[in-house]
């Protein structure tokens, strides 16, 4: 599928852990300022695929890949590319909330601080927390430990922490899977709000969630890209029989 304004272009991507092929010959373009959902049964390689996009798989020894991932026209796995630099432009929100064991305030300011942010930190904290729809709940206790927040609040703090870096792309790895239904609804609302300013790629095993929040959907099965298209189409009239079987719950 061709998109109008791609921010990430992935060509013939193969990802291996040791000898086993986790993602097979995958070519995708991710559209700017849209939400792209990656769905598929567990173990299909969706998290692997996502983590490859900001080089978070570098920490796994047996990991290797071939093919190209172009970000702004530059291959992020090129020898010249600095993973640290990639990660500050492509942020990530993880499956389980992982706030730093510091104050709420410092959780937000740390990333900008180490990267030489020169603006006003108070404004940054307020802006980021408002952006993550958390400001009203925590504005009176910014100096309390982030670990004192509830799970859902922690995850929104992690999103706030991420957008404080003003990334171009936000990757979300099943961001609501560890949360209760109410917090999940919060996060989903937030994603719909964030799409105005950010390109979001979200991995989810929850198909209703994908249908609710995303513009495009990408279906991975056993490491292969089965189908990629506009979310509405995928969920109403998929081209591929496997996709249809999966979204109607016949397997997975």
């Amino acid at each position: 599928m061709v998109v109008n304004n791609p921010v990430l272009k992935i060509h013939n991507l193969n990802i291996r852990y040791g000898d086993s092929l986790a993602v097979k010959n995958c070519s995708v373009e991710i559209e700017k300022n849209k939400v792209t959902a990656i769905i598929g049964p567990s173990g299909c390689g969706k998290s692997t695929f996502l983590r490859t996009l900001n080089r978070m798989n570098d920490f796994i020894d047996s990991f290797s890949l071939d093919g190209q991932i172009l970000f702004d026209g530059v291959d992020i796995y090129d020898r010249q590319s600095d993973p640290v630099d990639i990660r500050r432009r492509i942020g990530m929100v993880f499956q389980k909330p992982n706030p730093f064991p510091k104050t709420i305030y410092k959780n937000i300011t740390w990333g900008p601080h180490i990267n030489g942010y020169k603006g006003n930190f108070d404004n940054l904290v307020e802006g980021s927390l408002k952006g993550a729809a958390l400001w009203d709940e925590v504005k009176d206790r910014l100096n309390e430990s982030a670990l004192s927040l509830s799970g859902g609040q922690q995850q929104r703090l992690c999103i706030a922490r991420c957008i404080a870096m003003q990334p171009e792309v936000i990757l979300m790895d099943e961001p609501a899977s560890a949360l209760d239904p109410k917090s999940t609804a919060h996060i989903e609302e937030l994603i719909t709000k964030l799409r105005k300013d950010y390109t979001i790629v979200i991995v989810t095993h929850n198909m209703q969630q994908a249908a609710r929040v995303s513009d495009y959907t990408l279906f991975l099965y056993e490491g292969e890209l089965i189908e990629y298209g506009i979310t509405k189409n995928i969920f109403t009239k998929p081209d591929n029989q496997q996709t249809e079987d999966y979204i109607t719950g016949r397997f997975g």
Binding site: D85, Y117, K118, G119, Q166
Partner: peptide
């Protein structure tokens, strides 16, 4: 853009 990323090289060293 409020960030300055220019010190990347010295940081690598």
């Amino acid at each position: 853009m409020f960030f300055r990323f220019s010190h990347s090289l010295s940081m690598k060293i």
